[in-house]
């Protein structure tokens, strides 16, 4: 499949990105291109302008300082993040999540900014132009009036499947977004997601993600991300769970638990966190937290994965990720 025609722009710094986005309507940003180029080949998006931001070296940094925490430029590749020493040591869940995305080649190309802003996927949406043309109706995501995932649904039900967002939520990351005026806005990564499949994140056409910041976790904090997929590589998760646990004086001081591939966005499981916080962690307590997670998630069936299986899987993954994080935290 060939790409549609477009005009190519190459800004040299962050200011130029904003001015180019403001000047050119119907423009998209491209970094790794691993998500947007297939969609352009399938004619799901056909922008007039493509703005390649990969020449901006400032945005590729991975910086860590004990006081400041971890700062990831949005163009840091997933491969570099998964192999970065401070990330592996202090932000294990993120290194594990970044290291499990797709395949080595795609990790070399794909960036963290792209992974968190990835669209939700659907077998009725991510298809070629000819395939979609063969159906008499358009789905919500393509501007139509129905959802093929569940008949009668009033909203798009495409599945959000990115790997790194649950890890970032569990670790308490913040996203810096640059808006049309060039002003920076810092938000918690949970607020970055709308929990609506039709438009997964809050980014406006003139916005872009500049960096992601995670504060240094307190002593005794360990984290873990677990992913279950049908294949070991080039696959989205059936489900993924991240846990970040702070243990101090034998008791759980703080907990962050989040899951992916269960709905329209990454889901933070506050109910499961509350079970753990303030108590000394035992196997029974972990079971209770996993039950809370099971109660909270309401997944849809996806391909050959039933909702029932996915829900049970979430319980298992949440349990194991807490266990693994705790076994290291002690």
């Amino acid at each position: 499949m060939r790409l549609p025609k477009f005009e190519y722009l190459e800004p040299k710094n962050v200011k130029e990105i904003t001015s180019l986005l403001k000047k050119n309507e119907d423009a998209i940003l491209i970094a790794g291109g691993t998500d947007i180029l297939p969609k352009m080949k399938q004619r799901i998006v056909t922008p007039k302008y493509v703005i390649n931001i990969t020449k901006i070296e400032d945005l590729k940094k991975i910086e860590f300082a004990e006081k400041k925490g971890l700062t990831l430029g949005s163009l840091a590749t997933l491969d570099n993040i998964s192999k970065s020493k401070p990330v592996i040591e202090k932000f294990t869940a993120l290194a594990q999540a970044a290291g499990r995305v797709a395949s080595p080649q795609l990790r070399n190309m794909g960036t963290i900014g792209g992974n968190i802003s990835i669209e939700s996927m659907c077998m009725y949406f991510n298809q070629s132009h000819e395939w979609r043309k063969g159906r008499p109706h358009l789905c919500f995501k393509l501007g139509g009036d129905r959802c093929f995932v569940a008949k009668g649904s009033k909203d798009c039900l495409a599945l959000f499947q990115a790997d790194t967002p649950p890890a970032l939520i569990a670790l308490g990351a913040q996203v810096t977004i640059v808006g049309a005026t060039g002003k920076e806005k810092i938000i918690n990564i949970e607020d970055f997601y709308t929990q609506k499949s039709k438009k997964v994140n809050i980014l406006k056409p003139t916005d872009f993600v500049k960096q992601i910041h995670i504060p240094t976790p307190p002593k005794g904090t360990k984290s873990c991300y677990l992913k279950m997929a049908q294949r070991a590589a080039i696959d989205y998760p059936i489900a993924g769970a991240a846990a970040c646990i702070t243990v101090s004086g034998g008791k759980c001081k703080n907990a962050g638990i989040a899951v992916t591939a269960v709905g329209s966005g990454p889901l933070r499981l506050k109910e499961a966190e509350e079970v753990l916080i303030g108590n000394s962690i035992t196997d029974e307590l972990i079971e209770k937290a996993a039950d809370a997670a099971y109660e909270k998630v309401r997944p849809m069936p996806h391909f050959n994965i039933s909702a029932w299986y996915k829900r049970k899987l979430i319980r298992v993954l949440v349990k194991r990720s807490i266990k693994q994080a705790c076994s290291k935290a002690k």
Partner: peptide, 24 residues
């Protein structure tokens, strides 16, 4: 579409997919 790896080339020491890299 980036799922098979048949187009893998090495750019600056890293294996990447040529089908998802713009020539420019």
């Amino acid at each position: 579409l980036g799922a098979c790896g048949a187009c893998t080339v090495v750019i600056d020491g890293k294996a990447v997919l040529a089908c998802l890299t713009l020539a420019l």
